[in-house]
């Protein structure tokens, strides 16, 4: 007469249906415009890099989990995301073995040896890319023009960032006049330059050149609520302001900050790498500090250090202090008065 129910558990008895896999799938979809742009501009170079990096990332994920006797996590698609992001940050002429070695660093060393997805301190793609840059600095700073190239300076195939960088070196050497002249040549056709930077028809890492493709991805992530927008916004805005100030100091004018945020993988980093859930802070407050820190560091490293690019290293440095940020930016608990508001 008594009827016994078959399943007992504890509240809540509902779940949003969300999963890590769905989240990763959304990131992959958001990356598609960037992937397409890279293939459009860099053709086979891009396809080969993407296939090699993503494929090897999946294999490394599978093998390392097997060796470490953990459950198979290929299914969560995070390895695909890491592989994609890593490939998209590589120069088109990167030798394939180096790209595959990058996958190894990202998946095995940075992710699995730190405990797997969720426990890694560094963004795997950023860390691997940074490692490759130091270990293989020549191939990773050799740029080729897009297949469709129509770049301002067709002979050198220098990236816009490299040009800015060389201008900064001039300043460092005290040749302010030379610098100014170089800068003025660089921006001699501003609307064309900005147009190139937006579409991405310039030399650079295969996925980092097209601002438009990155922005489409960003919009998708925002619609799907997969991104902590405050990181991207504060990052880009801070970079803009810091470059504006520096630009004003050296008399570069208002185009300088715009070039600054549209070049050198800043947008790509701000949308796809800095916002990585695992390696960014817990609370909104923390994420704003994180974004501001990224912006300042990126521009400072970019302009005043010997490294060609500031995005990667600023992300890695900020990744490192995330636990510290988390500890000091906890939300005020409901019903508790903030310490400094106590009478």
């Amino acid at each position: 007469m008594e009827n016994f129910m078959k399943k007992i558990s504890f509240s809540p008895f509902a779940h949003s249906g969300d999963s890590v896999k769905k989240a990763m799938l959304d990131v992959i979809i958001a990356l598609l415009p960037v992937v397409l742009a890279s293939i459009l501009f860099f053709r086979t170079d891009s396809v080969l890099l993407l296939v090699a990096t993503v494929g090897s990332a999946i294999i490394f994920e599978y093998l390392s989990r097997k060796v470490l006797k953990r459950y198979n996590s290929v299914d969560d698609l995070s390895a695909v995301v890491t592989g994609l992001i890593l490939a998209l940050t590589l120069p088109p002429a990167t030798p394939i073995p180096i790209a595959i070695f990058g996958s190894f660093i990202a998946i095995v060393v940075v992710k699995q040896l730190f405990g797997g997805l969720g426990n890694n301190i560094f963004n795997p793609a950023a860390a691997a890319r940074g490692f490759l840059l130091i270990a293989f600095s020549v191939p990773l700073t050799t740029w080729t023009n897009p297949a469709t190239a129509a770049y301002v300076d067709a002979t050198s195939s220098a990236t816009p960032l490299a040009i800015v960088k060389s201008i900064m070196l001039n300043i460092k050497a005290g040749d302010l006049e030379v610098a100014k002249e170089a800068y003025n040549t660089f921006i001699s056709d501003p609307s064309h330059l900005i147009q190139l930077l937006f579409t991405g028809n310039v030399a650079g890492s295969i996925g980092e050149t097209s601002a438009i493709a990155i922005l489409i991805g960003l919009i998708y992530l925002v619609i799907k609520k997969r991104i902590h927008l405050e990181i991207t916004l504060t990052y880009v805005l801070t970079s803009f302001i810091v470059s504006l100030i520096i630009g004003l100091i050296y008399g570069f004018g208002l185009l300088f900050p715009l070039i600054s945020i549209l070049s050198g993988g800043l947008l790509f980093g701000a949308v796809f790498m800095a916002t990585d859930w695992v390696t960014s802070p817990n609370t909104k407050k923390g994420r704003i500090i994180f974004g501001v820190g990224l912006g300042v560091l990126t521009i400072v490293i970019r302009l005043f250090s010997n490294f060609p690019e500031g995005v990667l290293f600023s992300i890695l440095i900020m990744n490192m202090i995330v636990p510290l940020i988390d500890r000091h930016t906890k939300n005020r608990i409901f019903g508790k008065v903030k310490k400094n508001e106590k009478k």
């Binding site: 558990s9 779940h15 969300d18 890590v20 989240a23 969560d76 405990g115 797997g116 997805l117 969720g118 426990n119 902590h228 859930w277 695992v278 390696t279 960014s280 817990n282 609370t283 909104k284 906890k330 939300n331 005020r332 608990i333 409901f334 019903g335």
Partner: peptide
């Protein structure tokens, strides 16, 4: 209700907790 995977630090639980907890 599962399987329970590692926390991916997405902050959803933090952003949506009505008591502002983590």
């Amino acid at each position: 209700k599962g399987p329970e995977l590692p926390c991916v630090r997405c902050s959803s639980c933090i952003d949506e907790c009505p008591a502002f907890l983590e």
